[in-house]
């Protein structure tokens, strides 16, 4: 079983990794210590591989700093579920192989912080204490990038970008 972490609406990149903690000011090797360092200081210590973040709309708004997505990818999250994601964060997470899944807010409303859950990305299902949520099936290229472990291994293996005819 994994644990659920609930966050609010419009979670921004400065909450995920404040600019003062981002590499350039610190070292990239320290990044795993900083996700939500000020917004939720216990998160980097307690989060376990496979845990899932559930949040309100517009998760990841703000900066283009990939460190926000990278810090969460380093936690080996199972996925982040939200009604919508800010677009640069969405791309950054995809590029790093961190699954983001859009789920309507009403379907997420029964979930509570620290609930035990299990997530199965193959069957697109999240099981929780009071039931299950059927997740929308991702685009085939999205799944292929997740499986490859990010955009770079996907691009190196296929020689093309999503939507591009193979050269």
């Amino acid at each position: 079983m994994s644990t659920l972490w609930i966050f609010g609406d419009d979670v921004n990149t400065d909450q995920i990794v404040p600019g003062r903690f981002a590499p350039y000011m610190t070292s990239e090797a320290e990044l795993r210590r900083f996700p939500f360092i000020e917004a939720r200081p216990e998160f980097p210590e307690l989060v376990q591989p496979g845990d899932v973040i559930v949040a309100g709309p517009n998760f990841g708004c703000g900066s283009s700093r990939e460190y926000a997505a990278q810090a969460l990818a380093l936690c080996e999250l199972g996925a982040i579920l939200a009604p919508s994601f800010a677009r640069i964060f969405y791309r950054n997470a995809l590029n790093l192989g961190l699954p983001l899944i859009e789920v309507p807010a009403e379907e997420l409303s029964p979930l509570r912080d620290r609930d035990p859950i299990s997530l199965d990305l193959d069957s697109c299902e999240l099981r929780h204490a009071n039931g299950r949520i059927a997740l929308r099936k991702p685009a085939s290229f999205t799944r292929e990038i997740w499986q490859a472990g990010g955009l770079i291994p996907y691009f190196q293996r296929t020689g093309h970008f999503p939507g591009e005819v193979a050269l």
Partner: peptide
């Protein structure tokens, strides 16, 4: 438009982006 490090690096390497 803004992009993250991986997108920009791949764009510089491939000479194109998506």
């Amino acid at each position: 438009t803004g992009m993250g490090s991986t997108d920009v690096a791949v764009c510089l390497a491939a000479g194109r982006t998506w």
